[in-house]
Simulated assay, not measured.
Amino acid sequence: MTTVNGGRVLVVGGYGAVGATVAATLSGWFPHRVVVGGRDEARARRPGGVHVDVTDPAAFRRTLTELGDVAAVVMCVEPPDARVARLCFERGVHVVDIGATPRLLESVAALHEVAAGAGATGVLSVGVAPGLTNLLARRAHEAVGGSERIDLTVLLGAGEAHGADAVRWTVDNLAAPSAAGPLCVPLPRHGTRTAHPFPFSDQHTLPRTLDGARVTTRLCLDSAPLTAALFALRRAARHAVVRRALIASFRWVHLGSDLFALRADAHRGDRHAAYAVTGRAQSRVTALVAAYVTREVLSNSLPAGVHHIEQLPSLSRLPEQLADHGVALHHLTGPPFRGDRRPWSESGTG
């Protein structure tokens, strides 16, 4: 790995489950160059820490000025708007963003010319979903020569201790409307599962980056009974009191494992290609993806401007790079799924 400068890396939200793993991984590669930022004043006073509040752009600007030599910022929390990203780009500071809210991703992507003009790179859709799902979608899309339709499936481990923000985001989006219906999807190491439409940001991003393909993302949990119960409450989740109860339940009840699986199916006429990724501890893998992307950003091998992860060819092999961390890539063969339990096969490549 070659780095261009000795600037530091500011991990914003570095005290959370994802941020702490990002900071620890980057510290192993870049000793004494990682600064952990967050709103916790006590932790910010520790060596290598700094107080950061993404809801206050003026204060964030002062933090960047005081640090002085920040080369990259890793956003492990979502700010309310794109002003913090703009501040970074205007200073020529790279940004790696694990955000998953379509509106915010669009507003940061709109800063492409600002970043490019300052020689800064922004990478969006970084993590598991979005992130690895985007990379799988592009791989399947190219395998069929440009897809007309892409179906993405995300299975998350109900037994994993997800952070409060992740649980709240999932529950808040449960009642989002969708024109698509559920599908029975075969997933490596999990068998056939019923997955339900869910508003992950990848299905909003990919039609623009993959030539207009129609994209639907569906979600299930590794616990089939919990999946059924969760989506049975979809309409009720429109009410705040129900959402609060669900958030409390998911924070304390863990009925499954920490395994996760992702699958991307691309269709073009009678052509079909499918790839999947399996692993464990989705939050840890999200952090690892962010760390690997940040390392690539610091090598200065990525073009200036703002890009989603699937738009950067040098990041296409990330699933293979994560093999040492228990992540496996699967090339699936056989007829496409049709909501039934047809036979299928796989060949592991990770």
Score class of each variant (00 low, 15 high):
residue 194 T to G: 00
residue 24 A to S: 11
residue 275 Y to Q: 06
residue 245 A to Y: 03
residue 77 V to S: 08
residue 3 T to Y: 09
residue 111 L to N: 05
residue 13 G to Q: 01
residue 168 R to K: 04
residue 174 L to Y: 06
residue 180 A to I: 03
residue 276 A to L: 04
residue 2 T to R: 14
residue 268 R to Y: 08
residue 340 D to M: 03
residue 160 E to W: 11
residue 271 R to E: 15
residue 235 R to L: 09
residue 89 F to L: 14
residue 64 L to V: 06
residue 343 P to H: 01
residue 257 S to F: 02
residue 154 V to N: 00
residue 279 G to M: 00
residue 160 E to N: 01
residue 15 Y to G: 07
residue 283 S to W: 13
residue 90 E to C: 06
residue 302 L to Y: 06
residue 58 A to T: 12
residue 161 A to G: 15
residue 216 T to K: 00
residue 56 D to V: 10
residue 258 D to T: 13
residue 156 L to D: 02
residue 243 R to I: 12
residue 318 L to M: 08
residue 223 S to T: 13
residue 337 F to K: 00
residue 61 R to G: 14
residue 319 P to I: 04
residue 35 V to L: 12
residue 309 I to K: 06
residue 109 A to F: 04
residue 77 V to D: 09
residue 176 A to M: 07
residue 311 Q to P: 03
residue 101 T to C: 11
residue 34 V to H: 05
residue 258 D to V: 08
residue 87 L to A: 15
residue 316 S to D: 14
residue 80 P to V: 10
residue 23 A to Y: 10
residue 158 A to H: 15
residue 276 A to S: 11
residue 237 A to W: 01
residue 36 V to G: 09
residue 108 V to F: 07
residue 279 G to H: 03
residue 4 V to E: 10
residue 103 R to G: 13
residue 290 A to W: 06
residue 104 L to Q: 03
residue 12 V to A: 02
residue 13 G to F: 02
residue 236 A to Y: 03
residue 217 T to N: 01
residue 119 G to T: 05
residue 17 A to D: 11
residue 334 G to D: 13
residue 2 T to Q: 15
residue 114 V to W: 01
residue 84 V to G: 15
residue 107 S to K: 08
residue 50 V to Q: 03
residue 106 E to V: 14
residue 186 P to H: 09
residue 93 V to A: 07
residue 142 E to K: 10
residue 88 C to A: 11
residue 103 R to F: 07
residue 188 P to I: 02
residue 320 E to Y: 14
residue 70 V to G: 09
residue 13 G to I: 07
residue 177 P to E: 09
residue 165 D to C: 07
residue 205 T to Y: 14
residue 65 T to P: 02
residue 346 E to W: 14
residue 208 R to M: 14
residue 218 R to P: 00
residue 310 E to N: 08
residue 37 G to Y: 07
